[in-house]
Amino acid sequence: MINSLRYLSVFRVSAVVFSNGHRSNPGDADEAEGGLFKILLSVVLICSASIVVSAQLRRPVSNDPPDPAVEQRLAKLSQELRCLVCQNETLADSRADLAEDLRDEIRTQIRAGKSDQEIIGFLTQRYGDFILYRPPVRPKTYLLWFGPFVLLLAGLALLFRYVKRRRDMIEEQPLSKADRAQVEKLLSSASRKEIV
């Protein structure tokens, strides 16, 4: 945590330096641009700092020594589960309190010899299918699972129809004898020139 704070303050300093550099340019527009730049920069830096923090703070809550086999199963399982507090993070990545509690709960259940299926059942019973990153295939989710393929097929069908119509629009015009003779003459003269 202290480390990450230090990161942040370094970033703050660099942001200030950047904006000061801008200030030497005269004109209000530059000022405004510098302000925006500063904000953008801080957003980017704060985000990257939080990645550093989350990497540092992931640790089991319980005091028992971690069992590698359990931890491995937990890691695999929690990659597939959504943290409900910060919904775009997996349970494995999230630092939310609830995620830590749920990881501990999963850990206990793994130790108790529950299967992955049973643990996932336990969680969906309480939090619903939403906790799964891979929603189960059932009538309610058909559109989600098969919709993209339906769209793809529809797109292909439209494309084929369009291409076919374009092709039908072009009439084949066979060469007349005179044209052919002229083409051959031109081609042969061209190839002779190339040799010379």
């Binding site: 409900l84 507090v85 309190d97 609830l98 509690d101 749920l102 709960e105 309480r126 939090y127 619903g128």
Partner: peptide, 13 residues
């Protein structure tokens, strides 16, 4: 205290 009943009730916020 430990939020265990909260988990049973699906509390997340």
């Amino acid at each position: 205290l430990d939020g265990r009943i909260g988990i049973d009730y699906g509390v997340y916020g």
